[in-house]
């Protein structure tokens, strides 16, 4: 099925099988930052932003995103300028092994649009859908809190 989507600001025309997930459609088009892990909406490693809302791309059909705007982790930075959440993750040693991190960054970046000054409790609540197999949640949560603080002082 032929669909039109906007990916990281660029209009694209895709020919996709109806049963293909958005995750597969993105990865097949050279965007491997969106990770394939549980493929059942449990772990959040495949989080992307579709029309302004972060969601699990492994349990969304590509065709459901027809006509919509998709932002992947690759699209958060501007040139070599990292997104404040990406910057905060690198500054706080929150990159860890890196596998669940793109999903966490996409989730946090999108959540901060909705709630620019969350409490630690609110960040923990949002990260319920982002699993880290190394169980390293402390530094990512600190990183998001530091992104919030840096934003306040700028």
């Amino acid at each position: 099925m032929k669909i039109e989507v906007t990916v990281n600001g660029e209009s694209q025309e895709w020919e996709v099988p109806v049963n293909q997930t958005l995750l597969d459609a993105l990865r097949l088009r050279g965007l491997p930052g969106t990770k394939r892990v549980c493929e059942s909406g449990e772990c959040g490693a495949c989080a992307v932003i579709v029309d302004g809302l972060a969601l699990d791309s492994c349990i969304l059909l590509a065709v459901q995103a027809a006509g919509m705007s998709i932002v992947t982790v690759e699209g958060l930075s501007t040139g070599s300028q990292l997104h404040p959440v990406q910057e905060a993750f690198t500054q706080n040693g929150a990159i860890q092994c890196g596998f669940c991190i793109p999903g966490m960054i996409v989730t946090a970046a999108n959540y901060l649009e909705e709630n620019p000054s969350p409490t630690q409790e609110e960040i923990r609540h949002v990260f319920v859908g982002n699993l880290c197999r190394c169980t390293g949640y402390k530094k990512p949560i600190e990183a998001v809190l530091s992104a919030v603080r840096d934003d306040d002082t700028s």
């Binding site: 809302l53 972060a54 969601l55 989730t107 959540y111 319920v128 859908g129």
Partner: peptide, 9 residues
């Protein structure tokens, strides 16, 4: 019912 990422979809 579900985590935030799911409640968004």
């Amino acid at each position: 019912t579900a985590p935030w990422l799911i409640r968004n979809a």
